[in-house]
Design a protein around this nucleic acid. Structure first.
Length: 109
DNA sequence: CGAATGACCAAGC
DNA sequence: GGCTTGGCCATTC
C-alpha cells in the first residue's frame, strides 16, 4: 500500500505472489490471467522487477517452466537454489516440472 | 500527452 | 530444442 502505490496492478500481483504455497510455482501468464488480462503477463514481469524482497518472487516463473533469472544472483542466491530448497522438482533440461509444482490460483479477491 | 520500457507469450524458422 | 519477430498494455520519463 504505502510502497509503490502508484501501480494498482502491481499491488494485485504482489497480493497473489505473497500467497503462493511453499514448494509451488506460478507463471506470469497465470497471474495476468487471474487479474483479468491474459496479455498482461509482461506487466506482471515488470511488477516483479520492483517487487519487495519479502515476497517469494522466486516462485514466479515463465510459462514453459523456465526460470526468468536463471544463473543471475539475486539477494545473495539464485532462483533455482531457492526453489530446490523448497522441494520444487526440476526436469533434466533445467526447467521446473510444471505438472507437479504449478500452483493453480484458487483464492478469492 | 507521446515515446520508450519491460523478470512475457505465441508463432515461425 | 533454440533463436527471432510481432504483439501486448500498464508504468515511466
Amino acid at each position: 500500500m504505502s510502497l509503490m502505490e502508484g501501480g494498482l496492478f502491481f499491488q494485485r500481483v504482489y497480493d497473489i505472489v505473497e500467497r503462493i504455497p511453499l514448494g509451488k510455482v506460478v507463471t506470469y501468464g497465470s497471474i495476468a490471467c487471474y487479474l483479468g488480462n491474459p496479455r498482461n503477463a509482461r506487466m506482471v514481469g515488470w511488477a516483479m522487477h520492483s517487487c519487495p524482497n519479502f515476497l517469494p518472487w522466486h516462485r514466479v516463473i515463465l510459462k514453459n517452466g523456465k526460470l526468468p533469472l536463471e544463473g543471475l544472483m539475486v539477494d545473495g542466491t539464485n532462483q533455482k537454489e531457492l526453489l530446490l530448497e523448497e522441494g520444487v522438482v526440476f526436469l533434466s533440461n533445467g526447467f521446473v516440472d510444471l505438472e507437479k509444482c504449478l500452483w493453480q490460483i484458487k483464492i478469492r479477491l
